[in-house]
C-alpha cells in the first residue's frame, strides 16, 4: 500500500514536471500542445476508488494550472476525464472483470482495448480543455484542428510511454 502510494506520488511528480518543463516548451506549431500528464489518470490501478481518481485528477489539474497560469482549466478537464474513466472502465470491462491490483497498460490489456480506452479519455480531456481555453465559438474550427492534432500527438506519447517505461514490470 505504501509502496503503491510512493509509486503514484513519484509518477505524479514526474509527469507534472515533464509536462510543465519539457512538453510545454515543444513548439512544432501553435496547433500541437500535447498534454501527457493525463497519463497519470490513465494509469491508475483498476480498483482505485472513484473518489480517489477524482481527487487525483483535480490535484493534477490544479498543479498543472499553477504552473501554466490557467487557473481551473486543466483541473476542470482532468476531473471530467477522471469521472468518465469509471464509466469507460465499466463499459470496456472483460467478462470476468479486472484482476485485482492491476493497472490498465498496453501489455496487460492488449492494443485494441488500450487504444480505445486511452483515445476516448484523452479526447474527452482535450476537447474540454481546449474549448474552455478558447471560450468562444468563432474560433470553433481552428480549435477543433488544435484539439485533433493535440490528441494525435498526446496519443503518440502515451503509446510511447507504454513501450518505454513499464516493460519489466508487466512481464509475467
Amino acid at each position: 500500500m505504501i509502496n503503491e502510494l510512493i509509486k503514484q506520488l513519484f509518477r505524479f511528480a514526474f509527469l507534472l514536471l515533464l509536462q510543465v518543463l519539457v512538453l510545454n516548451n515543444i513548439q512544432f506549431s501553435g496547433y500541437i500542445n500535447p498534454y501527457l500528464y493525463v497519463l497519470f489518470i490513465l494509469m491508475m490501478p483498476f480498483d482505485t476508488p472513484v473518489w480517489i481518481v477524482l481527487l487525483s485528477g483535480f490535484l493534477m489539474g490544479v498543479s498543472v494550472d499553477t504552473f501554466m497560469n490557467t487557473a481551473g482549466m486543466h483541473a476542470a478537464a482532468t476531473v471530467a476525464m477522471a469521472f468518465v474513466r469509471s464509466y469507460v472502465l465499466k463499459l470496456f470491462a472483460p467478462r470476468e472483470g479486472y484482476e485485482f491490483g492491476t493497472e490498465p497498460t498496453l501489455r496487460y490489456m492488449g492494443p485494441a482495448w488500450y487504444l480505445s480506452y486511452s483515445v476516448l479519455l484523452v479526447s474527452i480531456h482535450h476537447f474540454i480543455f481546449f474549448y474552455i481555453e478558447v471560450f468562444r465559438f468563432n474560433e470553433f474550427f481552428s480549435t477543433l484542428l488544435r484539439v485533433l492534432l493535440s490528441i494525435l500527438f498526446t496519443m503518440v506519447l502515451v503509446m510511447l510511454s507504454q513501450f518505454l517505461i513499464y516493460k519489466p514490470r508487466d512481464r509475467k
Binding site: 472513484v50 483535480f58 482549466m73 476542470a76
Partner: peptide
C-alpha cells in the same frame, strides 16, 4: 457520491476560472 464529488470539484474549477 461520485457524481456529487464530481460536481463539487467541477464547481471549484469554475470558481477558480
Amino acid at each position: 457520491n461520485f457524481l456529487l464529488l464530481f460536481l463539487l470539484l467541477e464547481s471549484i474549477c469554475v470558481y477558480l476560472m
